[in-house]
């Protein structure tokens, strides 16, 4: 009897922890929508901020975050996939690949503010790119590289060896095999890594704080060497740095909601793409 009771109790305990997670997520989303929805309007989304963000919209921050995501992905995705292809398909597994893997794991564990400092040192100062979109994208690209490499390599390894052998046995070269009989089947897994990476890039504040983000810049960037506003930093500024934080709180919540929708939207698009790809190639 007591055994049965403890069985039930444990089951409920586990269930409660699961409910708790859902509750936390639900609360955060609810809180942001509840306070943020009222701030959202056409003006808020598509106009320049005025009076340090107390009035007007967040258009330049939306554009800025979009540019940072696009730019850093454009750098990190090809680089990460190429590294993954090398590690999974070409490299002889040994001391060197082991060292590379340790480096990747270390890179993944570095706090984002350290990436910011690194970006400041290398891109902003040493390479002389200044505080610019270029520096920000490069810094963010370094930060998400490990995520992309690891997920890409895993998805390449998930492709059965027999498909590679089948292709090679038909006289295809190694590259032809990878291009037409390995990569198409691993795109789905790579997209998963991309979703995670996009979420991080859009949300991180520390790396862009030191390399690109503008405190208040009510105009759109003209080139990759301009500074730009970004949603997470703008959120931080509004909620802690503004002279009248209480008055701009609705704007801060509005900004948070836009950021959330942006990240979820991009993630959703990638998930739909992944489903489409998986449906096309299943084995």
């Amino acid at each position: 009897m007591s055994g049965k009771f403890s069985q039930k109790a444990m089951c409920w305990l586990m269930r409660l922890t699961a409910y708790f997670v859902v509750l936390v997520v639900g609360f955060i989303v609810f809180e942001i929508i509840w306070h943020g929805a009222r701030a959202i309007s056409w003006e808020f989304l598509f106009s320049m901020p005025r009076r340090s963000g107390a009035e007007g919209g967040i258009f330049p921050a939306i554009v800025g975050t979009f540019l940072l995501v696009a730019g850093s992905i454009a750098v990190a995705f090809p680089l990460g996939v190429a590294t993954a292809i090398y590690l999974s398909e070409y490299a002889r597994q040994g001391r060197f690949t082991h060292a590379v893997r340790v480096a990747i794991a270390t890179l993944a564990g570095i706090p984002s503010i350290v990436f910011g400092l690194f970006g400041l040192g290398l891109f902003v100062i040493f390479l002389g790119w200044g505080c610019s979109i270029m520096s920000g994208c490069a810094t963010l690209a370094c930060m998400i590289l490990p995520t992309i490499i690891v997920s890409s390599e895993e998805s390449l390894r998930a492709v059965p060896q027999s498909l590679r052998e089948g292709s090679l046995a038909l006289g295809a070269t190694k590259w032809q095999t990878i291009w037409s009989n390995v990569l198409p089947y691993s795109v789905g897994g790579m997209l998963t890594g991309l979703i995670l990476a996009i979420g991080r890039v859009a949300g991180e504040t520390a790396p862009i704080l030191l390399t690109v983000a503008a405190f208040y810049l009510p105009k759109l960037p003209r080139s990759m060497s301009d500074q730009v506003m970004a949603l997470p930093y703008h959120l931080y500024v509004l909620s802690t740095q503004h002279p009248d934080t209480a008055a701009v709180l609705p704007k801060a919540y509005g900004t948070a909601l836009v950021l959330l929708i942006l990240v979820l939207g991009v993630g959703l698009a990638a998930i739909i793409m992944r489903i489409h790809v998986r449906k096309k190639y299943k084995w």
Partner: peptide, 10 residues
């Protein structure tokens, strides 16, 4: 070559 475990491409 034909393999032991048939390996049609997906």
């Amino acid at each position: 070559m034909v393999f032991q475990k048939s390996n049609p491409f997906p």
